[in-house]
């Protein structure tokens, strides 16, 4: 829902942390986006293309790695992945768990020419 802000954050982060890339061409940026983050890749890509105009990231492509929802059972501490909240622990069948992964919003790497 806030893809525009996230796109701006990506551009600012790369500009401030990698000033030496100014003279290079950044071919692509790879992101890790958690399934719980509420961020849609297509929408992020759209805002990124718009907001990166006239920066070193103009014409840079985004690629995405999805991070699954990971939870830990509240009873037996088994860690398992789920696709929605309807799951119970595969080990002890308990229904309660704590969410430990799935809201990632990270830059993994960049391909530079």
């Amino acid at each position: 829902m806030h893809e525009a802000t996230i796109a701006k954050n990506i551009i600012e982060l790369i500009q401030t942390e990698f000033p030496e890339l100014n003279c290079k061409r950044i071919y692509s940026v790879k992101l890790r986006i958690g399934e719980l983050s509420g961020i849609y890749p297509e929408s992020l890509e759209y805002y990124f293309q718009e907001l990166s105009k006239n920066t070193i990231l103009e014409n840079t492509k985004l690629s995405f790695e999805k991070a699954p929802i990971k939870v830990i059972c509240a009873v037996c501490s088994t860690i398992f992945e789920i696709i929605n909240m309807d799951y119970d622990c595969p080990n002890c069948k308990n229904s309660q768990f704590n969410i430990i992964g799935g809201d990632e919003l990270e830059i993994i790497n960049m391909e530079v020419e």
């Binding site: 942390e17 960049m110 391909e111």
Partner: peptide, 15 residues
Amino acid sequence: MEIITVEQKILKKND
């Protein structure tokens, strides 16, 4: 082509 590892949170500045 060269791959530069970043591994940083997009919301790093906010955090």
